[in-house]
Amino acid sequence: MTLRRTAFQGVTGILQNSWFTGFLRGRIWRGSSKAVCIPGLNCYSCPGAWGSCPIGSLQAVFNRASDRISMYVAGLIGLLGIVLGRLVCGWLCPFGLIQELLYRIRSRKVRIGPTRLRFLKYAVLAVLVILMPLLVRDRFGVGDPWFCKLVCPAGTLEAALPLLALNASLRGAAGWLFVWKASLLVATLAASVVMYRPFCRFVCPLGAIYGLFNRVSFVQLTLNEDTCTHCGACVAVCRMAVDPSHDPASAECIRCSDCVAVCPVHALSLGLPSAQRKQRTVID
């Protein structure tokens, strides 16, 4: 299951960033497909990106002097959230894949259980993605995308590094802000080697939004309580520190389905609940 998911993540990640001309010429795609947000955290200034980053787009509308509410982008994110929840994080986010691949490097691993640090991503969402872009403006009434500007390591990796490598003029303009963002990127990537998806668990505002939909999304991780023996196999395999036998709809669950694969009594299933009922009937 893990390899199948990795392959799926790889294919979707490449498809989302497959304007290869951009990587050769140091430019970004300027077509109409950029009007649509892609599901995961993927910088729209990545030279290969066909679509827009949902978090960047959300801030762009907040930044507009004439508007205060972003209905279009919020609607797109909400639509994905209500259908898939954090399945997007586990299956469709290129930056999540990068962190997972780094975690496969042989090294000592640090396993952090449920911690209050998980709430940091909600603070990042509230302060850097919503409040500051709405409230902090220049004399022309225009704001900044503060999360992108101060934090986003995906933007540094996917956009800054290739664009600065290919454009001398951009390279010349890079200053302390780039150094700060590059430092955050290095810290994130280094942490990813020893810890599973640290950015997703503690920082990502998009994961925070999708997590809020986990309890009501159409796609669900479902537990059959009659079958579950509470053996703890699912808890042991979950690297997001979720206990699927207690709370299968946890906001931290990225629906990677590792717990489904490891359950010895097939008490867990992932999918649309109506389809799952049929499946259980067959098993029973």
Binding site: I28, C43, G56, A60, D67, S70, Y72, A159
Partner: peptide, 23 residues
């Protein structure tokens, strides 16, 4: 209908200087 698509695409088709640590 409120013109947000134009805002999104305008931002997305230009290099985001903030994203790359310049702006």
């Amino acid at each position: 209908m409120n013109g947000e698509v134009r805002t999104v695409i305008t931002k997305a088709i230009n290099v985001c200087l903030q994203c790359i640590g310049i702006g």
